[in-house]
Design a protein around this nucleic acid. Structure first.
Lengths: 233, 233
DNA sequence: ACGGATCCATCATTGGATCCAG
DNA sequence: CTGGATCCAATGATGGATCCGT
């Protein structure tokens, strides 16, 4: 066996333009074909395969984050988001950003937040397909950073959301708060609980939440990265 | 199907004497037989079945702790420990008590420690068998609480151990410290790390540790619950 | 169509301890 | 013989998102 050379696969994009090229190279590919090529199982009911396509595209692009890293492409500080869109390019779902630490709500600041770090540079990979099991294909990826105006709105939404939580209003919170960002439940099922500020300095057990980008916002930036939709909610 | 009554199995000992009776009722039983009766798999190499007998006896006695409870029998505040002994009743191993939080070492106190809570009432169930795959049988269980003298020694050992950790000496710690209690590694493998105080207020990554009772101590109390072995180390 | 609820895989942690080299 | 190292199962978090009732 000595003397055989084992080919080393350097499967990591060196910079943003190489990453974007690779992502663009996937455009038009069928998701099913990609799954077979990478040896990933995608069959099964839709309800049992949430998240699988996201993982598939991560592998196809050589994401290295997986393990507690802040970004999917850690050296480039780029976050990968697959987004399901219809044939006209409209997102069919909102986009999960990150988990929200309810207990730290009072001290939370947009400037130092995990959400800001993740959203500072995002590779959006649309997955084109209409509802109900039709064929899905990879669309045209774009690399995006928030404009100054978008970022100011994120900061406002963030303060609005975490201000209310810190005030002890978690049970009164709803997904209606926030123009671009919103807070929604995030957990395996309804019995999961985490601690959150309650009335007058107490703590209450609440369903874990996550921050999400509204679908109208992501729809707008996919058409125009600088967009500032007036009615994202 | 209506009208059939489903027998409700109240499988929880109401008090200590009932628990002890049940444990005594297991005396002489073969571990292998018990495993078959309870539908628990015990076959396989010894190195792959660490801990299985402990779980088996928990089930046999109806322990309810399992899930983040401090004690195995939570309502009775009793901890169950199986202990492997040879034919003369000598323990073949030390006994794990609980994980040690290195990072909180400076603030740790015996009086309020998790270790003290667990050791305040222990149902010791000896598992009799010589080394190397011979038949193992359940021995005579005893219900034990530390004597005042034993508890003072625990407090001394505890202060000695956590004092050194808090001082930033984790890498200099060894299993030699402590007369009845000792600190030893506790983790899946050597790459696991947790944070610990380092020199001059810094933090260092260290192998997680656990508190253990020395085998000579447990051997002594199995013969005489009030024993105070001079040379437990 | 939107907000509340849920689903899977993977990794980390905890609780049950015993293995084994020196 | 014993202190350092390790093993398994079950549970909890985290990261990937989409489902689906109102």
């Amino acid at each position: 066996m000595m003397g055989e050379s084992i080919p080393v696969k350097l499967d990591r994009a060196a910079d943003e333009s190489e990453l974007l090229s690779r992502a663009r190279g996937l455009a038009g590919e069928s998701v099913a074909t990609l799954a077979i090529r990478l040896g990933v199982a995608l069959e099964g009911e839709a309800v049992r395969t949430k998240g699988k396509v996201g993982t598939l595209i991560e592998r196809a692009l050589g994401a290295d984050g997986g393990c507690a890293a802040t970004w999917d492409f850690s050296a480039l500080r780029v976050e990968l988001k697959t987004i399901p869109v219809d044939s006209r390019g409209q997102p069919r779902e909102s986009t999960f950003v990150c988990a929200a630490s309810l207990i730290d709500a009072e001290r939370a600041e947009w400037a130092t937040s995990w959400a800001r770090a993740k959203l500072s540079r995002v590779l959006w990979v649309p997955i084109v397909g209409d509802s109900k099991g039709g064929e899905r294909r990879v669309g045209d990826a774009i690399l995006w950073s928030p404009s100054a105006a978008q970022e100011r709105q994120f900061a406002d939404d963030f303060d609005d959301i975490f201000g209310r939580i810190g005030f002890g209003d978690i049970e009164a919170m709803s997904g209606h708060v926030g123009r671009f960002l919103q807070l929604r439940p995030k957990g395996a099922h309804g019995r999961v609980r985490t601690l959150s500020p309650g009335a007058e300095g107490t703590l209450v057990a609440a369903m874990p939440r996550g921050l999400y980008l509204r679908a109208r916002f992501t729809g707008a930036i996919l058409r125009d990265p600088m967009a500032f939709p007036d009615d994202a909610r």
